[in-house]
């Protein structure tokens, strides 16, 4: 029982990271109907930037903020330069972002090398807290779970309660009609791309605090965020949360029961969801 709860907590903290990455992806897809395959690259780049800032300043929050801002701006530049023109051609955007991912992966390998690094966090937080039924559990993991929940709630409020959010939702339903009502949809697209990339960069710092940052992680996180949004339903923030929790828990449980097949079972989850509900759990029928 104790082990079961421990694995559950591990799964939930893993889900917290997956949710942060996937929420950016699902946000971009929800509005623009394009999928950016450079999302894992944004994650890893954010992690590295956070690592450098934290190493220089010793301030974790500054690192997270700086990484989010930098990756967000980079995403905005990429959107303006490469994606904007081809926004209606989703396949082409997917492939172009894949090219960006190839370049990004290579340049990061050249800059940061192939060894694993990890974002440092204050020693005061490197303690365990007593969780009922589990025993000692790292405080930082619980904090990250908390951060992720807060970000999720803020995102939902932002989408559902603000004027900008209502513009975004209108754009999701019909971007042409939204433009016709006088909204500059282009700026909205740019802003969402910024926000989505920034979330990936932020997730990189958060994930880089718990898990090592190393080449190949970009692909891993891209795949997991794809699985999360496919399971949860593309374009839905609550869907991303549900998908992340399912993927996090399933992968952690199978890691205990049948380690060799952890990834296979996680993807099997996706296949099952697709077979029953092709649009994902919270997705709207296409």
């Amino acid at each position: 029982m104790e082990q079961f709860l421990l694995v559950t907590l591990n799964g939930l903290t893993l889900a917290a990271v997956y949710f942060l990455v996937a929420s950016g992806l699902t946000l971009i897809f929800g509005l623009m109907r394009v999928i950016t395959l450079a999302h894992g690259t944004s994650y890893l780049l954010g992690g590295y930037i956070g690592y450098v800032i934290v190493r220089e300043t010793g301030n974790w929050a500054l690192g997270a903020l700086g990484a989010a801002l930098a990756v967000g701006l980079l995403g905005l530049v990429i959107h303006q330069l490469l994606i904007r023109k081809f926004q209606d051609d989703d396949m082409r955007v997917a492939l172009i972002t894949l090219g960006v991912a190839l370049i990004g992966t290579d340049l990061m390998l050249a800059t940061f090398g192939g060894t694993a690094t990890q974002v440092a966090f204050p020693a005061a937080l490197q303690i365990g807290v007593n969780v009922p039924g589990v025993g000692q559990y790292p405080l930082i993991r619980l904090m990250i779970l908390g951060i992720s929940i807060v970000v999720g709630i803020l995102l939902s409020l932002f989408i559902n309660r603000t004027r900008f959010g209502s513009i975004v939702r209108a754009g999701v339903d019909d971007s042409q009609m939204t433009a016709a009502t006088g909204v500059n949809v282009r700026i909205v697209f740019g802003a969402i791309f910024f926000l989505g990339s920034a979330l990936a960069g932020f997730a990189g710092v958060v994930g880089g605090t718990l898990f090592p940052l190393l080449p190949g992680q970009d692909g891993t996180y891209l795949l997991f965020s794809l699985v999360v949004v496919i399971v949860g339903g593309m374009g839905s923030i609550p869907g991303a949360a549900i998908g992340a929790v399912l993927v996090g828990l399933v992968s952690q449980y199978t890691l205990v029961i049948a380690p060799t097949y952890a990834l296979v079972v996680t993807f099997a989850l996706m296949v099952v969801v697709l077979a029953i509900r092709p649009q994902g759990i919270m997705g709207r029928a296409v």
Binding site: L82, L95, L98, G99, V100, L102, I103, T105, D106, L107
Partner: peptide, 11 residues
């Protein structure tokens, strides 16, 4: 940087 070159050609 073989991958970068490939990526540039690809894009």
């Amino acid at each position: 940087r073989y991958m970068t070159l490939t990526g540039l050609v690809f894009i």
